[in-house]
C-alpha cells in the first residue's frame, strides 16, 4: 500500500507541471493588456511600458514561466495587480469559505445520496424507489441558482427560519483564526456563533448538494443492484447474515467504487467555487474571487486561483485513487 501510494504521488509531478503550463498560457491567451487596464484608457504609452516592465510582462514567455514556477515552489503565488498584496495570503479566506461550504454540501450529498441509492436498490421497484429516483431526476435537472432563490424565498423570507445570505451575523462578527468558521468558533468555544455559522451554511449547502446528491443516488442504486445479484451476496445470506449487514457491509463495499469516482469528481467541481450559488448567497468564496479578478484583468490572481483549484482537483482524485486501493485489494497488484 505504501509503495502504491508513493508511486501514485510521484506520478502527479508531470500532471502538476503540465497543469501550471496550461494555466500559464491560457491566461496569456485572454485579450487585453493588463498594464493598460490598470492605468486606464488615458495613460501615456511610456507609463504603460514602464508598468509592463515592472510586472515582468516584457520578458520572453519562458522567463516569465520559470519565474512563476520558481515562485510556486517557495509558496509564492505572486502579487495581485489590483490590491498589491500577496496572493498566497489574500486567497486563503476565499478558499476557506469555499472549502467549508463544499465540505458541508458534499457531506449532505454523500449521506443522503448513498443511503437513498442503497434503499432504492434494496427495495427495488417499491414506492420509495420510484419517488427517490424521480426526485433524483428532478435534482439533476434543476437550475441551482433558481433552487437557491426558492430556498431563500421560502425558508429565509417567508418562514424566517434561516438567514438569506453571507457567512456570519454582521452584528456578531467572528474573529477568524483559520477562516473556516466552524473550526474557529469551536476553538473559541463560541457555540452561539457556531450555531450562527451552521444556520448560514444550511441553505447554500443544500442548494449545492442537490446535483451531486442526485447523481450519487442514481449511481449507488445501479451499482448496488448489480452487486446484490452476485454470488457472494447469496453466500453471505446463506450464512444466516442479517439483511442489513448483507447490504451495508458485503454489498456496499463492493458497490461503492464507481460511486467514489463520482464523489471525487463532484467534490472537485464544488471546490472550484460554484459561482452562481456563491453569488445568490453572497458567499465570499473562490468563484467570486476569480470572477472579480477576471473583470479586473488581474492576471496573477486568475492564474493562481485556477492553479489552486486545479491542484485541489488533482489531490481529490489522488485521494479517490488511494481509497480504491484501500477498498479493493486487487487494485494495487495490477
Amino acid at each position: 500500500m505504501l509503495a502504491y501510494t508513493i508511486r501514485r504521488i510521484l506520478s502527479l509531478i508531470p500532471v502538476l507541471l503540465g497543469l501550471s503550463l496550461i494555466v500559464f498560457f491560457m491566461i496569456r491567451a485572454i485579450p487585453g493588456d493588463p498594464a493598460q487596464i490598470i492605468l486606464g484608457q488615458l495613460a501615456t504609452k511610456e507609463a504603460v511600458a514602464e508598468l509592463t516592465k515592472q510586472l515582468g510582462l516584457d520578458q520572453p514567455w519562458f522567463v516569465q514561466y520559470f519565474t512563476y514556477l520558481g515562485g510556486l515552489f517557495t509558496g509564492d503565488l505572486g502579487e495581485s495587480i489590483k490590491t498589491k498584496s500577496a496572493i498566497s495570503e489574500e486567497i486563503w479566506p476565499y478558499l476557506a469559505a469555499t472549502l467549508e461550504l463544499s465540505f458541508c454540501a458534499i457531506a449532505i450529498a454523500i449521506f443522503v445520496g448513498v443511503n437513498a441509492g442503497i434503499i432504492s436498490a434494496w427495495y427495488q421497484n417499491s414506492w420509495f424507489d420510484y419517488i427517490a429516483m424521480v426526485l433524483a431526476l428532478i435534482g439533476v435537472s434543476m437550475p441551482i441558482f433558481w433552487l437557491g432563490l426558492m430556498e431563500q424565498w421560502v425558508f429565509a423570507i417567508n418562514l424566517d427560519w434561516l438567514p438569506t445570505s453571507g457567512r456570519e451575523e454582521v452584528r456578531n462578527p467572528i474573529s477568524s483564526i483559520t477562516n473556516i468558521y466552524m473550526i474557529d468558533t469551536l476553538i473559541q468555544g463560541r457555540f452561539d456563533q457556531l450555531w450562527d455559522v451552521i444556520k448560514h451554511l444550511i441553505l447554500p449547502s443544500v442548494a449545492l448538494a442537490t446535483i451531486p446528491m442526485a447523481i450519487i443516488a442514481r449511481i449507488t442504486r445501479s451499482s448496488m443492484l448489480e452487486v446484490m445479484r452476485s454470488d457472494y451476496i447469496r453466500t453471505a445470506r446463506a450464512k444466516g447474515l442479517r439483511m442489513f449487514w448483507v447490504v451495508y457491509k458485503h454489498s456496499l463495499k463492493n458497490a461503492i467504487i464507481p460511486v467514489l469516482t463520482v464523489i471525487g469528481l463532484q467534490t472537485g467541481l464544488l471546490l472550484g467555487g460554484a459561482i452562481l450559488t456563491e453569488t445568490v448567497f453572497s458567499w465570499p468564496g473562490m468563484g467570486r474571487y476569480i470572477v472579480d479578478a477576471i473583470s479586473a484583468r488581474d492576471y496573477p490572481v486568475i492564474q493562481s486561483g485556477i492553479l489552486v483549484i486545479a491542484f485541489i482537483f488533482v489531490m481529490i482524485n489522488l485521494i479517490v485513487d488511494l481509497l480504491y486501493a484501500a477498498i479493493d485489494p486487487r487494485i494495487k497488484y495490477n
Partner: peptide, 25 residues
Amino acid sequence: RMRQIRGNEIAMIFQEPMTSLNPLF
C-alpha cells in the same frame, strides 16, 4: 428464525467458487 437456521443447521455451497466469496474481505 430462517437466519438462525441458515449456516447453522443447513449450509450451502455453490457452483462458482470463483465468485462465491466476497472479493473484498
